[in-house]
């Protein structure tokens, strides 16, 4: 398994084009677990996590462009945390300091686990994912980038360069339920993003990929008084119930479907209450 460490994005794309099926490596916090356990035996590895073109973030008007190599620790640091609170809160819930220092947004999107905390927050934010190959760049819709468990719209010859998401323009919440506070894969999670006149709710670990609760979103948009940012008492209960109805959880070793549905109801309600006073 040759390991290539290209120095530029262009070199990385060329390496990928020359070796169809090569495995990309960023922080290694997903890939190395599989390699250590003997589950994954990549043919070729192309290291992209340290490429300058994938590192750091920039503000672009009312958007933020985050490189695929941005770590969770970086998402939690100001001033980025204030520009994207939902991403900062999701980042803070990931693993441990060691995992947050190494793990990247690009890796979370690459793995595309239904429990991915970064992915869930990004889907609620909306925006685009930029992928690149020797043939050029494509901007894909974040909302539909993940197509199923561990499946995305990325072609094998493409690498994820960055994500472009809107700067916060209203309350944002990320809430995650697990068996303890640290180092836990979500049993259920919600990411709520509020913009003037609009609400987006993405849910993690309750479907084959991130699930949007579109009926709950439409209900919230209609029930909130957008001049004051308040909602009638009881609206949060309905919001939670609609979110739970939109979830598609399964029974597995981490939780039962019924527990997950109930967890979503409560997490969504709580996120709503924190975002809109009555």
């Amino acid at each position: 398994m040759p390991v290539l460490v290209p120095e530029t994005l262009e070199e990385a794309c060329a390496a990928l084009a020359a070796r169809p099926g090569a495995t990309l490596l960023a922080g290694g916090t997903d890939l190395m677990v599989g390699i250590n356990a003997g589950r994954t035996r990549p043919d070729d590895v192309v290291m992209v996590g340290r490429l300058a073109e994938l590192r750091g973030w920039v503000r672009d008007g009312d958007h933020v462009v985050l490189g695929a190599g941005v770590t969770y620790t970086e998402c939690m640091a100001e001033p980025l945390a204030s520009l994207s609170p939902v991403l900062a809160q999701a980042a803070r819930s990931v693993g441990s300091p060691q995992i947050r220092n190494a793990g990247t947004l690009g890796g979370n999107l690459g793995t595309a686990s239904p429990a991915g905390d970064g992915v869930t927050a990004l889907v609620a934010l909306g925006g685009t994912v930029r992928v690149r190959s020797t043939e050029g760049e494509r901007d894909l819709d974040l909302a539909t980038f993940v197509t199923g468990p561990r499946r995305t719209e990325r072609r094998p010859d493409e690498l994820i360069v960055s994500v472009r998401v809107p700067v916060a323009d209203g309350p944002q919440e990320f809430l995650k339920l697990g068996t303890r506070n640290a180092m836990v894969i979500a049993v259920a999670s919600v990411a709520l993003v509020v913009e003037p006149g609009a609400v987006r709710l993405a849910m993690g670990s309750v479907g084959p990929g991130p699930v949007r609760a579109t009926e709950a979103e439409a209900f919230a948009a209609s029930v909130v008084d957008w001049t004051t940012g308040t909602a009638a008492a009881g609206a949060a209960d309905e919001f939670g119930a609609l979110a739970a109805a939109a979830s598609r959880p399964i029974d597995d070793h981490r939780s039962s479907a019924a527990y997950r549905r109930r967890a979503i109801e409560i997490l969504a309600k709580r996120a709503f209450l924190r975002s809109f006073s009555s």
Binding site: V3, V5, L25, G27, G28, T29, L31, M32, V33, I35, N36, V45, M47, T73, P97, Q98, I99, N101, A102
Partner: peptide, 18 residues
């Protein structure tokens, strides 16, 4: 690793050159 606390079991040694 470059000053950041990480788990060395999750670092691919061959990619840590430099």
């Amino acid at each position: 690793l470059d000053g950041d606390l990480v788990c060395s079991c999750l670092v691919l040694a061959a990619a840590a050159e430099g």
